[in-house]
Computed example of a mutant assay.
Amino acid sequence: MRRLLPLALALTLATSAWAQEPAPAPDRPLPDAAQEARAKALFAEVRCVVCQHEAIADSPAAVAADLRQLVRDEIAEGRTDAEIRADLVRRYGDFVLFKPPVREGTWLLWFGPGLLAVAALILLLLFSRRRRPETAALSAAEETELNNILAAGRNRRDPDANASDD
């Protein structure tokens, strides 16, 4: 049994190395410089569906390489940028674009942060305008008693205070 443990460990490590995603094929730019410039501009607008915080231009994921090649193929076929964006949205949803279109389904995405900021400002104004209750003045008897306590030195010091705190 002890002889099988190193073999099982080596087999486990080897299978995890095989399970890794292969590196994507290198990008093949379009022969026309104007078309390649259009493709690169679209790459910056499209979000990687794996990384989710990177554009496909910067993402090392294989899916991003596939999307770059898809965009290049569609540009080579003569599709417009709007048609390419629409096709990507059809496949992956509005999330694939860094600037999704403004429509009913994305209103919260576009206007939600602004509405939250306005609501916070209104609440801040309401709470700052609220009057704090005024403390009632001491009566003459209470004023006399307080002066007597202070004069007599009967006020209790903070038990945690040191003599240097006085």
Rank of each mutant, 00 (worst) to 15 (best):
R3M: 07
A8R: 09
T12D: 00
L13G: 07
Q20V: 11
E21R: 04
P22C: 04
P24K: 09
P24T: 00
A25P: 02
A25M: 03
P26N: 07
D27R: 13
P29T: 08
P31R: 13
P31K: 13
P31I: 06
D32E: 14
E36W: 08
E36C: 04
A39L: 00
K40T: 04
L42F: 00
A44S: 10
E45D: 06
E45A: 04
C48G: 13
V49P: 02
C51M: 11
H53L: 03
A55E: 08
P60K: 14
A62Q: 07
A65T: 00
D66Q: 12
L67A: 06
L67E: 03
V71I: 14
V71D: 01
I75L: 15
A76P: 02
E77V: 00
E77H: 01
R79K: 13
D81W: 06
R85W: 06
Y92V: 01
G93M: 10
D94Q: 11
L97I: 02
P100E: 00
P100A: 03
P101G: 03
E104M: 11
E104P: 04
E104D: 08
G105K: 14
G105H: 11
G105F: 08
L108W: 14
W110V: 09
G112A: 10
L115G: 04
V118Q: 05
V118T: 11
V118A: 12
A119V: 07
A120S: 11
I122W: 10
L123S: 15
L124G: 14
L126S: 09
R129M: 07
R129D: 04
R130V: 10
E134I: 02
E134D: 05
A136P: 01
A137W: 05
S139M: 08
A141E: 14
A141F: 13
A141L: 14
E145M: 11
L146N: 13
L146H: 14
N148P: 05
N148R: 15
N148G: 14
L150I: 11
L150R: 15
A161G: 02
N162R: 12
N162M: 10
A163H: 01
S164D: 15
D166I: 13
D166S: 12
